[in-house]
Amino acid sequence: TRVETATETAWISLVTALHLVLGLSAVLGLLLLRWQFPAHYRRLRHALW
C-alpha cells in the first residue's frame, strides 16, 4: 500500500505540473497572438462576444 500511495502522489504531481505547463503555454500563446495580431484579435473577440 505504501508503494501504491507513492505512485499515486507521483501521478498527481505529474498531472498538476502538466496542467500548469499547459495553462501557462495557453496564456503565453494568447498574449503572443494579441501582441502580434491586434486587429485580428479584436475582430476575433468581437465575433466571440
Rank of each mutant, 00 (worst) to 15 (best):
T1M: 15
T1H: 13
T1Q: 08
T1G: 04
T1W: 07
T1I: 14
T1P: 02
R2Y: 11
R2M: 12
R2N: 05
R2P: 10
R2D: 08
R2S: 11
R2K: 14
R2L: 11
R2G: 09
V3E: 00
V3C: 03
V3A: 03
V3G: 00
E4L: 06
E4N: 08
E4S: 08
E4P: 02
T5P: 02
T5L: 06
T5I: 04
T5W: 03
T5G: 00
T5D: 00
T5V: 04
A6R: 08
A6W: 04
A6C: 13
A6Y: 07
A6N: 14
T7R: 09
T7P: 08
T7F: 06
T7I: 08
T7H: 15
E8T: 14
E8G: 10
E8N: 12
E8D: 10
E8P: 10
E8M: 06
E8R: 09
T9P: 12
T9A: 09
A10P: 15
A10V: 11
A10Y: 10
A10K: 14
A10Q: 15
A10C: 05
W11M: 05
W11N: 12
W11A: 07
W11P: 10
W11V: 08
W11F: 10
W11S: 11
W11Y: 08
I12W: 07
I12Q: 14
I12D: 09
I12A: 09
I12L: 11
I12C: 12
I12R: 11
S13T: 12
S13E: 05
S13W: 15
S13Y: 13
S13H: 12
L14S: 11
L14T: 13
L14M: 09
V15H: 12
V15G: 11
V15Y: 06
V15F: 11
V15C: 09
V15Q: 08
V15W: 08
V15M: 15
T16N: 04
T16K: 04
T16V: 12
T16A: 11
T16E: 03
T16C: 12
T16S: 13
T16Q: 04
T16D: 00
T16I: 15
T16H: 09
A17V: 09
A17C: 14
A17Q: 04
A17E: 03
A17F: 07
A17G: 12
A17S: 05
L18R: 02
L18P: 02
L18H: 00
L18W: 07
L18T: 06
L18N: 01
H19F: 13
H19S: 13
H19T: 14
H19K: 09
L20T: 10
L20M: 07
L20H: 02
L20Q: 02
V21H: 00
V21L: 12
V21I: 13
V21C: 08
V21P: 00
V21Q: 01
V21M: 15
L22N: 02
L22G: 09
L22R: 01
L22P: 03
G23H: 00
G23Q: 03
G23T: 12
G23S: 08
G23W: 14
L24D: 01
L24N: 01
L24H: 01
L24G: 10
L24C: 13
L24Y: 01
L24M: 15
L24K: 02
S25P: 02
S25R: 01
S25M: 05
S25I: 12
S25C: 15
A26T: 13
A26V: 11
A26S: 14
A26M: 06
A26H: 00
A26D: 00
A26Q: 03
V27K: 01
V27E: 01
V27W: 06
V27P: 05
V27S: 06
V27A: 12
V27D: 01
V27M: 14
V27Y: 07
L28M: 09
L28R: 01
L28G: 08
L28C: 14
G29R: 00
G29N: 00
G29L: 15
G29F: 13
G29D: 03
G29C: 13
G29K: 03
G29Q: 00
G29Y: 01
L30V: 09
L30M: 10
L30P: 03
L30H: 03
L30E: 00
L31Y: 11
L31F: 15
L31S: 09
L31I: 13
L31K: 01
L32M: 14
L32F: 10
L32P: 03
L32H: 03
L32T: 07
L32W: 13
L32E: 02
L33E: 02
L33N: 00
L33P: 02
L33R: 01
L33T: 03
R34D: 00
R34T: 06
R34L: 10
R34Q: 01
R34I: 12
W35F: 13
W35H: 14
W35T: 07
W35Y: 07
W35R: 12
W35A: 15
W35D: 02
Q36K: 12
Q36A: 13
Q36H: 14
Q36W: 11
Q36M: 12
Q36R: 14
Q36L: 09
Q36G: 11
F37T: 03
F37G: 03
F37V: 05
F37E: 01
F37H: 05
F37N: 03
F37I: 07
P38E: 05
P38G: 10
P38A: 12
P38Q: 07
P38D: 06
P38I: 07
A39H: 14
A39C: 06
A39S: 11
A39V: 10
A39E: 15
A39D: 08
A39W: 07
A39G: 15
H40R: 13
H40Q: 15
H40D: 05
H40M: 11
H40F: 13
Y41H: 05
Y41G: 05
Y41L: 11
Y41S: 07
Y41P: 02
Y41R: 03
Y41V: 12
Y41E: 04
Y41W: 15
Y41I: 09
R42W: 08
R42S: 11
R42E: 09
R42F: 04
R42M: 09
R42L: 08
R42D: 05
R43K: 08
R43F: 04
R43T: 09
R43Y: 05
L44D: 02
L44I: 10
L44G: 03
L44S: 03
L44A: 07
L44W: 09
L44N: 01
L44M: 15
L44P: 02
R45P: 00
R45C: 04
R45H: 04
R45N: 02
R45E: 02
R45V: 06
R45S: 05
R45I: 06
R45D: 01
H46I: 04
H46M: 15
H46Q: 13
H46W: 03
H46P: 02
H46T: 10
A47I: 06
A47Q: 05
A47E: 04
A47F: 07
A47V: 07
A47C: 05
A47H: 08
A47D: 04
L48D: 02
L48E: 02
L48A: 04
L48C: 14
L48T: 05
L48K: 01
L48S: 02
L48N: 02
W49S: 01
W49Y: 04
W49R: 01
W49T: 01
